[in-house]
Design a protein around this nucleic acid. Structure first.
Lengths: 338, 338
DNA sequence: AATAGTATTGCAAATGTTTTCATTTTTACC
DNA sequence: GGTAAAAATGAAAACATTTGCAATACTATT
């Protein structure tokens, strides 16, 4: 109640023991007699004492925080990931420091630095592509780090994520099997975005393997936004030169495309086949339900949290990253080319 | 480079000055000679020194963090808010500690406590409804706090948000003016969710003022999810007893409804009018474009960040919360009742 | 009742900074 | 070149904890 000060010394006084005992009662309760522990607990409650983790952290004790830096928070894709990572890491006793860099890797470096100042116990970054300073920094500080979302071999830190190349490949292969030859793709800018770049590569390779190479002018680039995607497809339609299938770099773009097609009365899948990548919340409910590739954000978040916690708690455990496999989910937006 | 230790003392040694000078060179650079500052900067770089905010925090210096606790992260609605709040607070020099409580106010209390252990400089909570312990805790610690998203008078802490009652009222009034008498509503559960509760109240009152009271059996409750909303409306349609207008508690629910209607061939707005609340990203691009009420997440996040920063920096400034007004945005999903 | 062993507690040093105050160095002026 | 004022620096105390070690208090055993 007293909002005067209430540090561990005040508690000690109130409980008529030494500060050391109070400290122990928190950190190694088994070392203090049950009755004194009770006295201390009472004092703590009476004084409204709240432990000061900053003061602990100074002793090389873990801070109980992990940093999470994402490109952006308010894209469905990352929101789901942040949620699952947050839940899992919380469960493991840590608290998240969150920041977003807006696809600017220099900014990511600055943010990582800031988090290191806060002495985070570990860091999670999205993707495998980062400024060399960033990697160097994390490495020199020996901060346990994982790369999220995206999987690759031989990275500076273990990855927990999906194989985006394979995701792209899977969906394009599906299109190829459906005999589509006149295929267009709608992708976000790939620079500074290794996820998108790899998906696109997968798409191109799979298409090529079906002899349906993606022509340069059939690759539409658009910001990651439903409005932008809709506008882009509307423009495409205005040109009159319609592809028989459209592969979108992610589901949000596909939603935008679907809305554009709906507006212009182009029937999906009869008149055009459309697919996405990601299987975000909402793709199943979409009308028509979107065929896409599932990249399980929930699973990735959970596994990444577990991995990072393990690295923090037992640094020597040479724990490996994990590849979570993308999976084709066929719904209603595809038809065979006529 | 040396990843040996590198504290402020090591830097001092390397630069041949005292630790005090190093500290000053960081915190009050104007007090140290330019040439010594340069020496210090060099040493810092050579040693790869990173400041330890935990050690500063111990001195009552601000930690440079603010806690943000939301019900859930991966709902469009909060994702946008977190993004804007995060950007703004980052800009002001703070870092976010983020957690979600899943609409469990006891959990919220526990999380707040945990953040206080980390000595956050301020806290932001969603909505005005919280466990009394939570308010009491924050109050007794004198932690600058703001309530986000939702505005009300006479709250324990200043609010930055919208008047949800008014938002509900606005959209329902629009429906009333369009002469709809047979109105249904699709809302998330209102318990533990003051935002939804107030919207619903606004809807009911506005409807009543048009003599179009919302019958109990016309109030559908569904979890906040596009799938659930779609399913609920599909069920409604199966019953055959179709309202002429549907008011959804938020845009995500409206999207679900729209998909259900699309699937069953019910034309919007000719056969049924549908509206949402929120104006989330995607509602404009939706086909047909959703009529809704804009609650400007971006603005709320920015203002809240500014307010909380001000309270932290100048606690005595009796800064007030701020009401951001919701605004009806009419698009294509409404028609007058026949 | 004394002894040895163990369980519990306290003392004091240590952690990485900041800050007050005192001291030294520099500058400006005559 | 000397003095006074101003600027720059350093020494040491303070911040809220934890922990190794020493001291004390119990328990069981004889």
């Amino acid at each position: 109640m007293k909002d005067k000060k209430s540090d561990i010394i005040a508690v000690a006084k109130a409980a008529r023991v030494s500060p050391s005992t109070v400290s122990r009662s928190f950190n190694h309760p088994e070392l203090v007699k049950a009755t004194t522990r009770k006295k201390i607990d009472n004092a703590v409650r009476r004084l409204g004492y709240i432990r000061n983790r900053a003061a602990q952290t100074i002793h090389g004790i873990r801070s109980g925080t992990v940093g999470l830096i994402v490109p952006t928070i308010d894209h469905t894709i990352f929101a789901e990931l942040i949620q699952s990572f947050s839940d899992a890491i919380e469960e493991l006793g840590f608290t998240i420091l969150l920041a977003s860099h807006g696809y600017d890797l220099q900014r990511e470096y600055a943010l990582a630095r800031k988090m290191l100042e806060h002495r985070v116990d570990g860091m999670a970054l999205i993707g495998t592509e980062h400024a060399t300073e960033t990697v160097h920094l994390l490495d020199s500080q020996k901060t346990p780090t994982v790369f999220l979302w995206n999987y690759a071999e031989h990275t500076a830190f273990p990855c927990v994520g999906s194989d985006n190349y394979r995701a792209g490949w899977l969906i394009a292969d599906h299109i190829g099997r459906l005999q589509h030859q006149n295929v267009a793709a709608l992708f976000p800018p790939v620079s500074g975005n290794d996820r998108a770049a790899q998906r696109l590569a997968g798409v191109q390779d799979a298409l090529a393997s079906h002899g349906a190479d993606l022509a340069d002018d059939r690759l539409l680039e658009t910001p990651y936004s439903i409005d932008a995607a809709k506008a882009a497809i509307l423009r495409l339609l205005a040109h009159g030169d319609m592809p028989s299938a459209l592969i979108c770099g992610n589901d949000v773009l596909a939603w935008g495309a679907l809305h554009a097609l709906g507006k212009e009365g182009v029937r999906v899948p009869q008149d055009m086949t459309v697919v996405g990548i990601g299987d975000f919340k909402g793709s199943r409910a979409f009308e028509p339900a979107l065929t896409t590739v599932r990249i399980p954000a929930l699973q990735i978040g959970e596994k990444a949290a577990a991995l990072i916690a393990e690295q923090i708690v037992t640094p020597q455990s040479g724990s490996q990253g994990e590849l979570v496999v993308p999976e084709l989910v066929v719904r209603e937006t595809c038809a065979a080319a006529l």
